[in-house]
Design a protein around this nucleic acid. Structure first.
Length: 588
DNA sequence: TGCGTAATAT
DNA sequence: AATATTACGC
């Protein structure tokens, strides 16, 4: 985001602080109007007769930005052909239009001559309205005033501030003008974009073009009768959402490609920057990481054949071409290359890898074979061979991470045709935790050791060391990039100092996985300490505790006894439990 | 046939 | 360096 939260608030609360002079003979009506205005963050000064108001103005003890004058009382006079009307006025003046007492009225009108004047009245007389307008009022609002109309009286202040030709930068308007200018400078593009996008979900391209051609947005204030409180940032979310929706639609990669490309090649630098930033912030840095990876990968993939007119374009492609369909994605790149068609390279994007991991998790390590993974991934264009290749690499990497002894101690996988070779095999010792439909873990959650390149921030293309997206270990945690540190000598997971040392876990080959679990769980808690402990966070921890009973419990909870676990398992009809390494478990 | 794996090619 | 392809044994 370009602007800070403070700036956002400034926009949102914009009318705040504008001083309104309220003149109404009816005290009740005045106080009612006053409270309404105050709710809108205006500062209200109420007067019950015009003389008080006038003296307040002339004394200049207070500077008013807007005056609202209830004309009821005056209207009588007007009709009686003595006095007047009026109005709502800008910049410390009330314009009194007087038929009979023209001196008085014209005096004020004269002093307010170069100021916009907005009138408020319950008069429905066209002639009265016309008079007021002719005499300089910029608007004649009929009562009852809607909140929207009332709220938007600030528009005339702004209009005045920017359209007085510079010759009338009164003291009261100067700060307003400066403040608005500073806000506009922060939001020039987005504000424009918002205006254009409010009506319809237009492609960003048109926004960009409009931005070039349109005068500055503050040059066209709509009439207050068409309330438009939205200022800039308020509708930013819409654009974000739209953008995000497009980006996350995996089926429309081609359309997306076209759109985004056109935007990014059309727009000037600042706009391009904005677009990217929106995307990045929305996707929590994932996009940034991806961009780095993708741009690099894409360039490599195209082997210097494809011509990227600008590096920006390549970057743009990389950040937006993400598709679950690797063939589609790569064929898009191949359009400009000659030899790209020759080979269908699967781009194992983080998303694709995530799918892969999910499938593997779902199947369990022992059942994770290419064909089934392929089935589960449901990615068009992906072949069994692709998966086999990826799986091969995946396994190799995994083997590197897991201590050798793990391999030794792990019970040999059952023969392929053995009865136990089932889907969703419920084994506490499986390297791939069971997939729970209501708790789909994210890729990397169970396999921090195998992070596809591009998932790393800072361009660290390391495979094999833990990294948890969206979470940076506190400095007090000494997670070091070596598997050995995940389990100490006795096989106990390394614990964060603040959370105690070695929990009473039997030594076995799964210390590493436990450590993962610990880190995940505690990282969740860590977050919940900093922020508000959201229910979902608690739910997640609880879910994880339930779904992965083999992981240690956070919050100092003791793990259930072996007996109770076995008991619970037997109640669920699971009678055969693989024997543990240290023999502390026994099958029933 | 399908899979895993290693070696090799791109 | 990452991925695809191939070869081979099970």
């Amino acid at each position: 985001m370009v602007c800070t939260e403070n700036e956002l608030l400034r926009w949102k609360d914009f009318p705040k602080g504008l001083r309104v002079l309220l003149l109404d003979q009816d005290q009740n009506a005045a106080s009612e109007m006053r409270s309404r205005l105050e709710q809108m963050d205006y500062i209200v000064y109420t007067f019950c007769n015009e003389n008080e108001a006038l003296s307040a103005i002339s004394s200049k003890l207070e500077v008013f930005h807007v005056a609202i004058v209830e004309d009821k009382g005056f209207r009588k006079l007007l009709y009686a052909a003595t006095k007047t009307v009026i109005a709502l006025l800008i910049n410390s003046h009330i314009v009194v239009v007087s038929a009979g007492n023209s001196d008085w009225g014209l005096k004020f009108l004269g002093s307010a001559k170069d100021m916009p004047t907005i009138m408020v009245s319950n008069t429905h007389s066209i002639s009265t309205m016309m008079k007021c307008i002719v005499l300089g009022a910029v608007e004649f609002l009929q009562k009852p005033l809607s909140d929207d109309k009332l709220r938007n009286i600030w528009q005339h202040v702004v209009h005045k501030a920017f359209h007085s030709g510079g010759k009338n930068d009164s003291e009261s308007l100067k700060p307003v003008k400066e403040s608005i200018l500073s806000m506009l400078e922060l939001q020039p593009v987005k504000r424009e974009a918002d205006n254009e996008n409010t009506n319809e979900a237009e492609p960003l391209t048109s926004v960009v073009e409009n931005q070039k051609e349109s005068p500055p947005c503050y040059d066209k204030y709509p009439a207050p009768s068409t309330p438009q409180q939205k200022i800039g940032v308020t509708s930013m979310d819409d654009a974000d959402l739209q953008d995000h929706t497009i980006l996350s639609n995996e089926q429309d990669s081609e359309v997306r490609e076209g759109e985004t490309k056109s935007v990014e090649t059309t727009c000037c630098d600042s706009v391009a920057e904005t677009t990217v930033q929106v995307d990045s912030s929305e996707r929590l840095g994932e996009a940034i990481t991806k961009e780095e990876h993708d741009s690099a990968a894409d360039q490599k993939m195209e082997d210097s054949i494809a011509t990227c007119s600008r590096s920006d374009d390549c970057l743009g492609n990389g950040s937006t071409t993400r598709s679950a369909d690797p063939i589609k994605a790569s064929s898009l790149h191949s359009s400009s290359g000659t030899k790209a068609n020759k080979k269908k390279m699967v781009d194992w994007t983080p998303e694709l890898h995530k799918k892969f991991i999910k499938a593997v998790e779902q199947l369990g390590i022992d059942q994770a074979i290419p064909s089934r993974i392929l089935e589960l991934m449901k990615v068009e264009g992906l072949t069994r061979h692709n998966i086999a290749s990826h799986l091969q690499k995946f396994r190799m990497q995994r083997r590197q991470i897991l201590p050798k002894e793990d391999e030794k101690r792990r019970p040999r996988p059952q023969p392929r045709d053995s009865v136990q070779r089932r889907y969703y095999q419920h084994k506490p010792d499986m390297a791939f935790p069971i997939y729970h439909s209501n708790h789909a873990p994210t890729a990397g959650q169970f396999y921090p050791g195998w992070i596809p390149p591009g998932s790393y921030p800072n361009g660290a293309h390391t495979w094999g060391w833990p990294y948890y997206p969206g979470w940076q270990p506190p400095e007090t945690w000494h997670w070091k990039p070596h598997p050995g540190l995940y389990a100490d000598v006795c096989g106990c997971p390394v614990m964060p100092p603040s959370l105690g040392s070695c929990p009473p876990y039997p030594q076995n080959a799964y210390g590493f996985h436990r450590a993962e679990g610990i880190q995940n769980r505690y990282s969740i808690i860590e977050k919940s300490v900093d922020l508000h402990p959201a229910e979902e966070v608690i739910d997640k921890v609880v879910n994880e505790a339930i779904n992965k009973p083999w992981l240690p419990l956070p919050l100092g909870l003791k793990p259930p006894s072996t007996e109770s676990v076995l008991d619970a398992l037997s109640k669920q009809g699971i009678s055969t439990v693989p024997s543990c390494i240290n023999g502390s478990c026994r099958p029933r």
